[in-house]
Design a protein around this nucleic acid. Structure first.
Length: 362
DNA sequence: AAAACGGGGGC
DNA sequence: GCCCCAGTTTT
């Protein structure tokens, strides 16, 4: 059945006005004090929404303060060096968010005079602005009644309305957007959307929700049926693939260490790392030959100093960290350079390689 | 529709 | 170890 048919069917018998009022009253009283709630500045809202994608509030807060100090306005971010932006994002993950945000902010400065658009179609065209962020900016910064459906909202509404659609399926988000269009407060869409998310974060949590404290408990169909812990339905994803690597600590006679910049696309784009040897179809004996072909340096493997396992959402790196000495040759690789130990931490690294820093200091 | 894309925290 | 998190882009 299509969304347009299902929405009225689901909403029938549901007291929308009562729900809106209770949710907004609760949010006005109980909302957390957060740095991006100081005002409605669209740029501040935007940055917060990008940082909050797949990332917890407590993780974001210190990054947000630091980021807004470095780049207080769209102009500041547009003018910044990409590597400086990545450095400010270091450790937050999903680094394409940072590069897309800067790309989009540059477009806003160029095309819209530095004013974040309040038009849903212009907004959606910006890099990194998907359906959720679009709705969040429009409702929170511009008071427009647009849905902002994230994981919280799908969980909360699946329980309140007792919906058992698989929230892992893209189509299901459309259903919840249709429902929010129907339910949302026209007079205070900001508090309505944020209230839904705040409820998901504080009360209607994934495991053991605090239904006895819930401001809309008397409206919740899942609670009435005693099935709140069964919702939402989410199909499980497959497990990560393991990928073996050698991570090399290579120091020259001056005590400088070899690091390299990753490609500008793909995993950990434009971040820095210690040279990595993919061991999927390589053995320890052939590493020296492979490395000479790639880097132009003759090396000798010294000692293994650690084994670092790093888990991503879709794969697992298993890195053997090896100290290496240079026997001869000349560095011949455009993305790699020797840097002094004082300069090492001026570059942005993924957490997997931050784990290796300690061994370079020895 | 499915996969790529990070990292941390809770249990 | 598994699940989830104020998701978007690419295939």
């Amino acid at each position: 059945m299509k969304v347009e048919e299902r929405v009225p069917q689901i909403i029938e018998q549901f007291n929308e006005q009562h729900f809106r009022d209770q949710l907004i009253d609760w949010f006005d009283k109980e909302q957390r004090i957060l740095p991006w709630r100081e005002n409605q500045d669209p740029y501040r809202v935007w940055v917060s929404e990008i940082m909050l994608q797949q990332t917890r509030v407590d993780t974001v807060i210190p990054y947000y303060h630091h980021f807004m100090n470095l780049f207080p306005t769209p102009k500041d971010l547009a003018d910044a060096d990409e590597q400086a932006v990545l450095k400010a994002w270091e450790g937050l993950g999903y680094y394409s968010r940072a590069r897309n945000l800067q790309n989009a902010v540059r477009e806003v400065v160029q095309d819209y005079g530095g004013i974040v658009p309040d038009d849903k179609y212009k907004l959606k065209k910006l890099k990194g602005v998907g359906p959720y962020t679009q709705g969040a900016i429009l409702s929170i910064a511009y008071d427009q009644p647009e849905p902002a459906v994230d994981g919280n909202v799908m969980r909360v509404l699946s329980r309140i309305l007792n919906i058992d659609d698989d929230i892992a399926i893209p189509k299901t988000r459309k259903l919840f957007e249709g429902l929010v269009y129907e339910l949302i407060s026209e007079s205070n869409p900001s508090a309505f959307n944020q209230g839904l998310m705040e409820l998901g974060a504080l009360i209607c949590t994934p495991k053991s929700p605090s239904c006895l404290l819930c401001p809309v408990q008397d409206q919740c169909r899942a609670f009435a049926e005693g099935v709140e812990s069964e919702l939402p339905i989410k199909s499980s994803k497959k497990k990560q693939k393991k990928v073996p690597y050698l991570a090399l600590i290579i120091e020259d006679e001056s005590g400088n260490v070899l690091i390299e910049k990753r490609p500008e696309e793909g995993l950990l784009a434009s971040m820095w790392q210690y040279p990595m040897v993919p061991m999927t179809d390589l053995d320890k004996e052939s590493v020296k030959h492979w490395f000479y072909g790639e880097y132009g340096l003759h090396i000798e493997l010294q000692s293994t100093v650690d084994h670092v396992k790093h888990v991503f959402s879709h794969l697992i790196w298993e890195m053997e960290v090896v100290r290496v000495s240079i026997v001869g040759g000349d560095l011949d690789r455009q993305n790699a350079q020797f840097v002094s130990k004082d300069d090492i931490d001026k570059f942005p690294y993924p957490v997997s390689h931050q784990k290796i820093h300690q061994y370079t200091l020895l």
